[in-house]
């Protein structure tokens, strides 16, 4: 239970970073931290005590594997996180090229 709680604290740090900071790069960093926390929570749910990795071998019994389904889901999540991150960086570079700043409160005033 305490592990899940620490994971949620990590999520809250990312949420604070997204809501509070003004630099666009800091906001991207916050999105990355949120993604780490969610991935780790999903893997923690599927862990089995004294289990082994989900790779079949001849000399070991089958039934004490950890849950392989969350691992497959998280593999997809990491790919989608990379795609989101690349799009965010491209948008941030475009904003810097157009407005000359990364500060999200200055963008409104500059007007093109």
């Amino acid at each position: 239970m305490s592990l899940y709680f620490l994971c949620l604290i990590l999520f809250c740090i990312g949420l604070y970073c997204v809501l509070r900071k003004r630099n666009i790069i800091k906001i991207i960093v916050g999105v990355g931290i949120i993604e780490y926390a969610v991935n780790l929570l999903l893997i923690l749910i599927g862990y089995r005590q004294n289990g082994r990795a989900p790779i079949s071998a001849n000399d070991q019994e089958i039934l004490n594997m950890v849950d392989p389904l969350p691992q497959a889901m998280v593999l997809t999540t990491i790919v989608i996180g990379l795609a989101v991150m690349v799009i965010l960086v491209a948008l941030a570079l475009r904003i810097y090229e157009k407005h000359g700043t990364f500060d999200i409160t200055k963008i409104r005033r500059l007007k093109g």
Partner: peptide, 26 residues
């Protein structure tokens, strides 16, 4: 923590190797 629900993935773990031929279940 440490005791997962294996309701769906029991099928994958027990019959993954002979149905697909792949040793890596993921």
């Amino acid at each position: 923590f440490g005791q997962p629900l294996m309701r769906v993935s029991n099928e994958y773990v027990t019959s993954g190797l002979e149905k697909t031929g792949s040793a890596n279940i993921v």
